[in-house]
Design a protein around this nucleic acid. Structure first.
Length: 422
RNA sequence: GGAGGGGUGGCAGAGCGGUUGAUUGCGGCGGUCUUGAAAACCGCUAUCCCGUCAAACGGGAUCGUGGGUUCGAAUCCCACCCCCUCCGCCA
């Protein structure tokens, strides 16, 4: 959520920055400021009347205690009460409308990010092993079918398209990867491991920005008004919602494994073959909560922590920075990490590392007490560390051998229990 | 799912229609005393919003959340959320 005071004082700056995402947001800012002006006017007037009524009520109390007649004053107070009620209703309506509008307004892009309208404008920041990448390889589906690592057809019998079963050594590899990632980040990168709930209340979905705007993309349990987590970002970031953290607790670094549930409405046909895009997939997620002045550096180290995964697994990748038009709703700055998939001869996104500034913290009322005793909003960040299915794809395609086996990189051996598949 | 109890300031815990933003204790901050510390004593000690910005000052709101009753609600009524105890069900 954007700071209403910032919008009030810098409406043109806010519009300019939002226009870098999409020009449509200008009128939204005007509507918000309109609500704000109306709200404050009504609020000021009813507060004056309320102060008056308070004085009268005190007098009434005193007169009654003394056994006197207070009926004239009571009549006055009643009249004031009616005016107050009407103005309060007006203020509440403005306030609620203002909040609804703020909740569907995306974060301002950071000043330093590249300007562009779509992913073709995303600059490559750095690359790893891409000079040595395999130009082609059998597709992960071909490899998986030879080695019985996946069963998409039978998964469809259970759940429909967009779901998979990992089978035999495939299931074991999936589990080994999850454990490898959790251990790497919790034991070597300083993240605290959490195993969070996967069903999420509406308020928490609003807190990180999935709701109200993207409700169509979420799986919901309507009976209980709960949503299936689309990413562990949601439970992790919301862990400390509505709290005021002591500054000594910051930065907080959290890591969690979770399955992720996404309806992916409207994306069938594009990049949907195999396990590149699923309605349910595993992911290990990194989240940070820190002081505002630390968030730029924390974004760099978070991205490095995710990259470390690919270095250890010897998978070629590149880091791109998202341009203004490609930026996610809540983010002010994002790096995507993309692994090379020789099977599809393209790069696949396995991690998206973002700095949200105070945008999420404001939505979930997450603050810290500054050294001078003032309460300030925290900054929040997150990144995948990493998404599993595409990592799985890159791993088996990049390490596929001419003899039909897969040679696993050494860091996985203790987790998988052997060096190759089969 | 059924029955009961409860949600008050950083924490503990009073208050159950009228100068109560709220007694008190603990903790925290400042001071007196002391070579220093402890003890004792004194003072301070929430958040949000509005009044164009900042400071000062003034006003309003906040006792789980939202409604209602009333001139006036932490206090009475209703709904919901959360926590605890017992019963039932259950991996």
């Amino acid at each position: 959520m954007l700071d209403i005071r910032f919008l009030r004082e810098n409406p043109d700056l806010a519009k300019q920055r939002l226009a870098l995402r999409n020009p449509q947001f200008s009128s939204l800012i005007d509507q918000i400021l309109d609500c704000d002006a109306q709200r404050r006017q009504a609020e000021t007037r009813y507060q004056q009347l309320q102060a008056e009524r308070k004085r009268l009520s005190k007098q009434i109390g005193q007169i009654r205690a003394a056994g006197g007649d207070s009926s004239t004053l009571e009549e006055q107070a009643r009249t004031l009460g009616e005016q107050i009620e009407a103005l309060q209703k007006q203020a509440a309506e403005c306030d609620s409308r203002q909040r609804q509008l703020l909740l569907i307004t995306p974060n301002l892009p950071h000043e330093q990010i590249p300007v562009g309208s779509d992913s073709s404008a995303n600059p490559v920041v750095r690359e790893y092993l891409t000079d040595h990448r395999k130009p082609t390889s059998p597709n992960h589906l071909e490899i998986a079918s030879q080695l019985q690592l996946l069963d998409l057809d039978r998964a469809a019998k259970i759940s429909g398209s967009g779901f998979t079963c990992f089978t035999h050594l495939g299931a074991r590899l999936e589990r080994a990867l999850i454990n490898f990632l959790l251990d790497l980040h919790s034991q070597h990168h300083g993240y605290r491991e959490i195993s969070p709930p996967f069903l999420i209340r509406r308020d928490s979905m609003i807190g990180t920005g999935q709701l109200p705007k993207f409700e169509e993309d979420m799986y919901a349990c309507e009976k209980d008004d709960l949503f299936l987590a689309p990413t562990a970002e949601v439970p992790l970031t919301n862990l400390y919602r509505d709290e005021i953290l002591p500054i000594s607790d910051l930065p907080i670094r959290l890591v969690a494994y979770s399955p992720c549930f996404r309806r992916e409405a409207g994306s069938t046909g594009r990049e949907t073959r195999g396990i590149i895009r699923l309605h349910q997939f595993d992911k290990v997620e990194l989240v940070k909560i820190c002081r505002p002045e630390d968030s730029p550096a924390e974004l760099e180290s978070l991205t490095n922590d995710a990259e470390r995964v690919l270095q250890l697994l010897q998978i070629p990748y590149r880091v791109v920075e998202l341009c203004s038009g490609d930026l996610g709703f809540s983010s002010m700055r994002t790096y995507d990490i993309e692994v090379w998939s020789p099977g599809q001869a393209q790069f696949l996104e396995v991690s998206s590392c973002s700095n949200f500034g105070d945008y999420q913290a404001r939505r979930m009322n997450l603050r810290f007490k500054d050294s001078d005793g003032k309460n300030r909003f925290c900054h929040t960040l997150n990144g995948s560390g990493t998404a599993l299915p595409r990592l799985f794809v890159a791993l088996i395609e990049n390490h596929f051998q001419p003899d039909g086996s897969i040679l696993l990189p050494p860091p996985l051996h203790p987790y998988f229990g052997k060096e190759k598949i089969p």
